[in-house]
Design a protein around this nucleic acid. Structure first.
Length: 669
RNA sequence: GCUAGCGUAGCUCAAUCGGCAGAGCAGUUGAUUUGUAAUCAACAGGUUGUGGGUUCGAGUCCCGCCGCUAGCUCCA
């Protein structure tokens, strides 16, 4: 006797052992017809699964309306795609075909290299398969027979996977769909006809099991939805996202550029982009002073020996610009990190407990030789500037200082209206040997960090992730998602007991007991890299920066050349008031001037003609709300200055994570 | 770094099968003197990323390099 508890609290009873589909039929015939998958005690399963013979289960049925069903259907669609590819090309080796956010992919090894030109015929073949509406049939085999079956189907990657990834499984499940049989945990929708609208999106290389040393496969990406409308809405959204790509806007709005002659991954800040950066830097500097930081400056290079002591050189030698070799064995490294330099400043004199915490801040430019394939826009570059600082404090001060750093990061993100982020605690992976320092120090640092974060009510905070620590200490990273759904680490706060230690720099301060003690270090960069931060900011605002950050805050638009003199006068007044202003004196019609200013995302336009000249006023046009009417020039200046001072963020469209609609099933093979 | 795709005027793009490199915008000049998202005209703009090769002939085909893009891998 099985008791089946439904979401609404009702309980059904079944004497014999029944499948999900049969249970659905007990609830209602319509539901049974629409059922795509089920859930038993929180686990998503197919409609053909048998429920337990007795006991009680929490049960529900998923239809098109449920995001969980979308995940299951996409996985089925991945199978259909693989089947289509196998029909079109010989000797296809299947690897993994999971669902991902926004769709699915399937990794395959085959001789023909698939290009986008192949997509139409693959999709055509998929349509045929969906049209035939054959069922997905699950069957389970013991290990030996499963191995024999995969071998017989010439699927060496599946054979290998049974041997390592699935070595603890006694039985293995397969899904058959016509001639296509695939080792797969499932679940799947009942039949191919239940797959709605789909589209192949892209193809790229991927290593077998993510290992660079192993075979490279072709990863075919696609997406699927239950309706054509949903698919089109999704594709439209991808197009929109492309339009606010910071690389596109950066060019259009003349914010930054690069040059092959300067080198790839090296950003040239154009005047407008530099203005945004300078404004942001000023904001940060003012905040640092308020919070008791002391600005310092350090060189762009340092002796290799210093980085050997810190550990950066041995740990990251392959992602650094090679050392500069001078005579007599003198070697310098282009600095990959600011911390050793700041440590030298700490060490420049004896320190007393009375002066701690010492907080040394610098917009420090660092250089890292990132591999060519991972460069992109402003978000992944080879030279970048961190809003960096290092805090040296007593062990008793750690919690307060760490909290202060997190608060500053939250404050900065709030100031630019970026509230959609998550915080990830990165702890060490106990099994890895890539970390420096003693275990007790690590345990202590991790516990402290977690304690502080727990008291802070950080948004979207997650459990600590093992293996995400810096090599010298655990950290809290602030991750934001860009308009294309990619997630970027911006701010970071890291706790470090190791660089101050005897084995590294041996830092000290004299305590109240007149004896030397070891300080603790905190590394922190609320914005992370200015390059990446502003790249993400461009997308966040879609190029339309709030008044306080806009490179050009006001554009004065004389109605005709007759009013150039008055327009210039207004411009001078605005400039004298500390606003960033230009005047458009081209012999153009006012409509054209407005259009150009709108397209340049200038927050305010001051239209001036005969009426305004008469009364010493301006007609204010707002980028978002349009014509606000005339007001005295002084009033307009006050209005703008107030908005700058308040750092008001007004956005027409708010950046949102791509709404990709739903659930991914965890089906990694 | 790996796999794949791409590279034409400042920008966005066109150029049939290998057969005279072209348009819009931006720019310059002139005319127009304009009231809330594009006034008109003329002019100028190119070693088709780069170096080789095939060919009577290469933007187009082949090879190397540089750069960009997607994904993989990595990210102090």
């Amino acid at each position: 006797m099985l008791r089946i508890r439904l979401p609404d609290g009702k309980v059904l009873e079944s004497k014999g052992q029944i499948t999900v589909a049969e249970a659905a039929r007990m609830i209602g015939p319509k539901l049974a017809k629409d059922a795509l998958a089920g859930e038993v005690d929180g686990k998503v399963i197919g409609v053909d699964y048998l429920l337990p013979a007795d006991g009680e289960v929490a049960f529900r049925v998923f239809t098109q309306k449920d995001p969980q069903a979308l995940g299951v259907m996409r996985h089925s669609c991945a199978h259909v795609m693989a089947r289509a590819v196998m029909r079109l090309f010989p000797d296809v080796q299947l690897a993994f075909g999971p669902t991902i956010e926004g769709g699915f992919y399937y990794d395959m090894g085959l001789a023909h290299s698939i290009t986008e030109d192949d997509f139409p015929r693959i999709e055509e073949e998929m349509r045929k398969i969906v049209g035939q509406d054959e069922p997905f049939e699950r069957f389970v085999e013991p290990r030996e027979r499963a191995l024999a079956l995969c071998d017989q189907m010439h699927q060496p990657l599946k054979v290998e996977h049974i041997g390592d990834g699935l070595k603890d499984e006694r039985t293995l499940s397969f899904y058959r769909q016509g001639e296509f049989v695939d080792l797969c945990r499932g679940p799947h929708v009942p039949s191919a006809g239940r797959i709605g609208a789909f589209k192949l999106l892209s193809v790229a290389g991927a290593y077998w099991k993510g290992d660079q040393k192993r075979q490279q496969l072709q990863r075919l990406y696609g997406t699927a939805f239950f309706t054509q409308q949903d698919l089109e809405a999704h594709l439209h959204q991808l197009e929109e996202a492309k339009r606010r790509d910071h690389r596109v806007l950066g060019k259009q709005l003349e914010l930054f550029t690069t040059s092959p002659l300067v080198g790839s991954g090296l950003i040239l800040w154009l005047p407008k982009g530099a203005m945004i950066r300078a404004t942001l830097e000023t904001f940060v500097r003012e905040e640092l002073v308020k919070r008791g930081y002391e600005p310092v400056y350090t060189p762009h290079i340092g002796r290799v020996e210093m980085y050997e002591t810190s550990g950066h050189f041995p740990y990251y030698s392959d992602s650094q610009f090679a050392p500069i070799e001078m005579e007599e064995g003198e070697r310098y490294l282009l600095k990959p990190m600011n911390c050793p330099h700041h440590i030298m400043i700490y060490q420049s004199k004896g320190r007393s407990y009375r002066e701690l915490p010492v907080r040394l801040a610098e917009f420090g430019t660092v250089y890292r030789y990132e591999k060519s394939g991972q460069l992109g826009g402003m978000t992944r570059v080879r030279g970048f500037t961190q809003d960096d600082a290092h805090l040296f404090c007593t062990p008793e001060q750690v919690a307060d200082e760490f909290r202060g750093c997190l608060e500053m990061t939250q404050m900065m993100l709030k100031a630019v209206g970026m509230d959609d982020y998550r915080v990830r605690l990165g702890f060490r992976d106990p099994a890895s040997d890539k970390y420096v320092g003693r275990r007790e120090l690590w345990d202590r640092a991790e516990a402290e960090l977690e304690d502080v974060c727990k008291t802070m009510n950080l948004p979207n905070m997650e459990k600590p992730v093992r293996g995400e620590a810096a090599f010298y200490g655990p950290k809290a990273d602030f991750l934001v998602t860009d308009c294309l759904g990619r997630e970027w680490q911006l701010g970071t706060v890291q706790l470090d007991y190791n660089l101050p230690s005897e084995e590294r720099f041996g830092l000290e301060y004299i305590g109240a007991d007149n004896a030397p003690h070891r300080p603790v270090m905190i590394h922190r960069a609320p914005l992370g890299s200015l390059e990446r931060f502003i790249g993400v900011l461009i997308e966040h605002f879609a190029g339309a920066f709030p008044l306080w950050l806009a490179p050009e805050q006001v554009r004065v638009l004389p109605v005709s050349e007759k009013f150039t003199t008055y327009g210039t006068h207004v411009t001078e007044q605005l400039r004298a008031a500390g606003l960033r202003v230009t005047v458009d004196v081209r012999p153009e019609k006012i409509g054209a001037k407005i259009r150009d200013a709108q397209l340049a995302h200038v927050p305010y336009m001051f239209v001036v003609g005969a009426r305004e000249m008469e009364g010493g006023s301006v007609s204010v046009r707002d980028r978002i709300d349009g014509d606000l009417g005339a007001m005295p020039l002084v009033a307009a200046i006050d209005k703008l200055k107030a908005e700058v001072a308040a750092r008001t963020v007004r956005q027409k469209v708010k950046m949102s994570r791509p709404q990709i609609g739903g659930g991914t099933a965890e089906n990694e093979y």
